[in-house]
């Protein structure tokens, strides 16, 4: 189900948010943890800026890296 939903994502899914936390490391852990909890494995923090109240983050889950088998191509093939 989720896979089908993600198959039209060209390459990656970014989550942009603000995480309430008390250090940059905590922010990183929480950001990665968040993506993991959503079922993503290939995740990375693109950007994080921490200040007092928490961290502004952009955390990414790659659906396809270059060279992968892109479902948005195969899906189109099967349609034809």
């Amino acid at each position: 189900m989720t896979e089908a939903m993600l198959s039209h994502v060209m390459d990656a899914l970014d989550v942009e948010t603000f995480l309430v936390c008390s250090s940059e490391n905590e922010g990183k852990d929480r950001a990665i943890g968040l993506m993991r909890s959503l079922g993503f494995q290939d995740v990375d923090i693109v950007y994080i800026h921490y200040a007092g109240p928490g961290a502004r983050v952009r955390v990414r889950a790659y659906i396809y890296r270059p060279g992968d088998n892109y479902a948005w191509v195969t899906a189109q093939e099967s349609r034809q």
Partner: peptide, 10 residues
């Protein structure tokens, strides 16, 4: 207040 705090921090 939460928004104010982060605006201040930025």
């Amino acid at each position: 207040i939460a928004h104010i705090k982060l605006s201040e921090a930025w």
